[in-house]
Structures are given as structure tokens and as C-alpha cells.
Amino acid sequence: MKIIILPHKKFCRYGKILKFNKLYKKNLCDFLLNNNININNNCGGFGRCVSCSVFINEGFSFFEINYLKLNYTLSCQFYDLNCNIIISIL
């Protein structure tokens, strides 16, 4: 499975494809940080600051509809990655 990160001037200049083999239990923010994508994480992953927001361009249909609003989510609150997604860091 893979996460495709679209290019962003500050965080991932040329975009990146990150691969993982099975269900990833940690949150998306930790996954990005562990793979050298220095996403903002001002509150330490408690979902209070909204600095780690991402837009899910593709793959959002695999998640519960009440979990996402307009395809935006906090990466620190996005757990159990189990499918291919394409994201934009906001």
C-alpha cells in the first residue's frame, strides 16, 4: 500500500511516494514524520492546533463518512491506514 504526497513548497517540494506493507496502526502524522516529511505538529498530536491538516485527494471513500468533512482531516487523528491514498499537506 502507498501514500502519495503531492508537492508542497514547504514540506515536500517534489512530492513523494511512501510505501507500507500492512495496516499501519500509528497516526498519519507520525507516519509522515518517520518518513522525513516535516509536517507541522504544534500540539504534539493531540488534535488541538489544526496545524497538521491534510486534504485527501483520493482514497477517502475507504473511510467512514462521518470521520471526514470535505476530505479534510487532522493527520494526528487519522489512524489505521489500510489503503492507498493521495494527500495534500495544507
Rank of each mutant, 00 (worst) to 15 (best):
N42A: 10
G44S: 09
L33P: 02
N36W: 00
D30M: 01
E64W: 00
F62A: 07
Q77D: 13
I65Y: 13
I56Q: 07
I39P: 02
N82G: 13
C76L: 05
C76S: 08
N42G: 02
Y79C: 08
N40L: 10
V50D: 12
R48P: 00
I85S: 12
C52A: 07
Y79K: 08
L68Y: 11
I86Y: 03
Q77M: 14
E64H: 12
I85N: 11
I65C: 13
D30I: 04
L33M: 04
G44F: 04
Y72P: 11
N57P: 03
F78Q: 05
L81D: 10
G59R: 05
F63D: 12
F63G: 06
Y67Q: 15
N57L: 09
K69N: 15
D80H: 10
C52G: 10
G59K: 03
L81Q: 09
N42E: 10
G44K: 02
I86H: 05
L33Q: 03
F46V: 11
N34S: 08
D30K: 02
C76D: 03
L68D: 14
Y79G: 09
K69L: 12
G44C: 06
L74A: 03
N38Y: 01
F60H: 14
N82M: 09
L33W: 01
Y67H: 15
Y79H: 14
N57F: 04
K69A: 12
S61Q: 14
C49L: 07
G59N: 04
C52Q: 07
C43G: 06
Y67M: 14
G59Y: 02
L74P: 00
N34L: 04
D30Y: 00
R48D: 10
I56T: 08
N57C: 08
C76A: 08
N38F: 05
G44P: 10
Q77F: 02
S53Q: 14
F31G: 06
Y79M: 08
S61T: 13
V54I: 15
V54K: 01
I86N: 10
S61V: 12
V50A: 11
I37A: 00
F60N: 15
S75H: 04
V50W: 06
G47S: 11
D80C: 09
E58F: 06
Y79N: 12
G45Q: 05
F55G: 09
L74R: 02
F62K: 13
D80P: 04
N71K: 13
L74W: 00
T73Q: 06
F62E: 14
G45H: 02
Q77N: 14
E58Y: 05
C43P: 06
L32R: 03
F46R: 11
F31R: 03
I65M: 11
I85F: 11
N66I: 13
S53N: 13
F31N: 02
E64K: 11
F55D: 11
I65S: 15
L70P: 01
V50K: 07
G47V: 04
L68K: 08
D80A: 09
S51C: 13
V50Q: 12
C49Y: 02
G44E: 08
Y72G: 10
E58K: 11
N35K: 01
N36L: 00
F60D: 15
D30N: 06
N35Q: 02
Y72K: 12
F31C: 00
L32N: 03
F78V: 04
I86M: 09
L68N: 13
Y72H: 14
C83G: 07
N71Y: 08
